[in-house]
Design a protein around this nucleic acid. Structure first.
Lengths: 326, 326
DNA sequence: CTGAAAGCGCTAACAA
DNA sequence: TTGTTAGCGCTTTCAG
């Protein structure tokens, strides 16, 4: 089943079929219809490699995540794959196993075989990334780099939402546990926390253990704390609990990301939900623009980088501040 | 950078370079060495699509998982990618989003572009899978199908390990919460539970809610329960706890899979650890055999299907049975 | 053991 | 608006 078969069946030349399928040149509607009919009469589907070799698109995009076993990233990848699928593009999801060098290697390996790349929270140095990407279509997720397209979740709103919730509950001494220095999401959230006048704690590792560590570093008088992410929040709650302080009666805790874990622990975690699947979808949309886009792609993003809204999910780990009561 | 460049540099023909690189024909060691030197002097790397188009391998394999956001599957995928990478093959990880039809569609879409496919716990009907795979190299993970290669974790040992642990602790009335009918892992575990004479409960959905439901269906006098998986176990513990029964003082609970969650909840879950990454690696190994293997691949697995060992991770959710005491 | 030549299926000038 | 003609980079007969 090749282009030639279709051409024969439709009574036109192979180039006409090619053009009809790719919209590469103006064709008479009649011809297009005839070709289209032949195509699905024959159940034809183009040969990806042939198309690629001949200088066309590969019809595939790559999505690189730092840690596939982290549902946070897996969900973004899912959103991306979903959207790409709708566009008829194949998606190659690749796992960098939390290694910057593996990440770079993956990119290098994938780039020749796809039309574009989506990079989720890449961990490699900016300069390296820029070099690896060259002028290829690419979109960064949650890690803006000048001159390249990106899509991010609203980190400032995340911290603000958590703070406002706590304030509304009557809390005044609110601590914020910082995430690992160097990660964009950390810096973005940390900066906002500082701006908001929260008591900064950490940075700590973005893990359960990190949360435990943070628990013992809380300023005296703290009645509420916002953690850099859910895992830290859970570790924090655990440490707090085993040191005799009750959550939420004695201290309220808010997480960030709303991973599944947050709804499974007791008390369930109040947390900020990130639009994960949407991040993936938007990234693919932006990538599609670049791929089909005109001009020297890669260097000049066509539109403003979208900042996606986040929302607060209130659960059992937060309660009104009531000194003396309960 | 093409084959021709290498050929020129090495002073041989392109076909010789091709043969040297693929070991397709007997070549004098001297020639091979010369070619090899030229290759890495030039930093040459073959053009995947060209190679594919010309009838060679694509140098890529696909790994299809039913739910990428489930760390259980993501970890298997990681193992697979890791090993494939070592073999110099590119890995395409794809997410079926828990839809059997999407799964089938993915397979159909990927199969023409890869040398082989690894299917993790596929959810589509056997007949459909067989049809979709045709005679292409493929390996099934945790879902044996006659006539196709597969690699599985030892489900029987999993239940046995849990039972023995509980027995050793003095428990005699042990319940087993069954997973969803139709899944291979469920049936394998359920059958073993029956064989072992445990009190069967369920089946319930493999979720937190399923565990909660199971809690109220436990036979009177039950002092220990083994759940189909960790999520169910956690839901079970939660329901038990809120109905006033303490874990592990009143009833011991054992999960299965040892996902991260198991170590994060309180009490932490005693559970059976599955060799996830190893499953992925072995699957790729078996796939590699088929791909390079002789004979009509796909129909006659070359070796016996491996059954990988599992281990028990003891944590806080289990304790000795001591009627009357503590 | 090695070279020459013929495509694989498709796209992209270049004509018409 | 459409057809003709070259290849893309590689593998593979077929000679030698």
């Amino acid at each position: 089943m090749t282009l030639a078969d279709v051409a024969r069946r439709a009574g036109v030349s192979t180039s006409t079929v090619s053009r009809a399928l790719n919209g590469t040149a103006p064709l008479s509607p009649a011809t297009v219809a005839r070709v289209r009919r032949a195509v699905d009469a024959l159940g034809y589907s183009p040969h990806r490699s042939a198309r690629h070799l001949a200088g066309g698109r590969t019809g595939a995009i790559a999505v690189v995540v730092p840690d596939l076993t982290n549902p946070f990233f897996a969900t973004i990848a899912r959103g991306a794959q979903h959207r790409a699928h709708e566009n008829g593009e194949l998606t190659v999801i690749a796992d960098a196993e939390d290694s910057p060098s593996a990440e770079l290697e993956l990119i290098a390996r994938l780039v020749p075989d796809v039309d574009g790349v989506v990079l989720c929270s890449p961990t490699a140095p900016t300069a390296r990334l820029v070099a690896a990407l060259g002028s290829r279509p690419a979109v960064l997720v949650n890690r803006p780099i000048r001159g390249r397209a990106s899509v991010v979740a609203d980190q400032r709103a995340a911290v603000r939402l958590a703070r406002d919730h706590l304030r509304g509950l009557g809390h005044e001494r609110i601590a914020y546990v910082r995430g690992p220095a160097g990660k964009w999401t950390s810096s973005a959230r940390d900066a906002q926390a500082g701006r908001l006048g929260l008591d900064l704690v950490g940075p700590v590792a973005p893990t359960f253990g990190g949360g435990a560590r943070a628990a013992s570093a809380l300023p005296r008088g703290t009645t509420a704390v916002i953690a850099h992410n859910d895992l830290v929040a859970v570790g924090l709650v655990d440490a707090l609990t085993s040191s005799g302080r009750r959550v939420p009666e004695d201290v309220s805790v808010v997480g960030c990301d709303d991973v599944e874990l947050a709804s499974l622990v007791r008390p369930a975690l109040t947390t900020v939900r990130m639009p994960l699947e949407q991040l993936g979808r938007r990234a693919v949309d932006r990538l599609a623009e670049q791929i089909s886009g005109s001009g020297p792609v890669g260097s000049a993003p066509t539109a403003a980088d979208p900042v996606l809204a986040v929302t607060l999910t209130v659960r059992g780990s937060t309660a009104p501040y009531a000194a003396g009561r309960t």
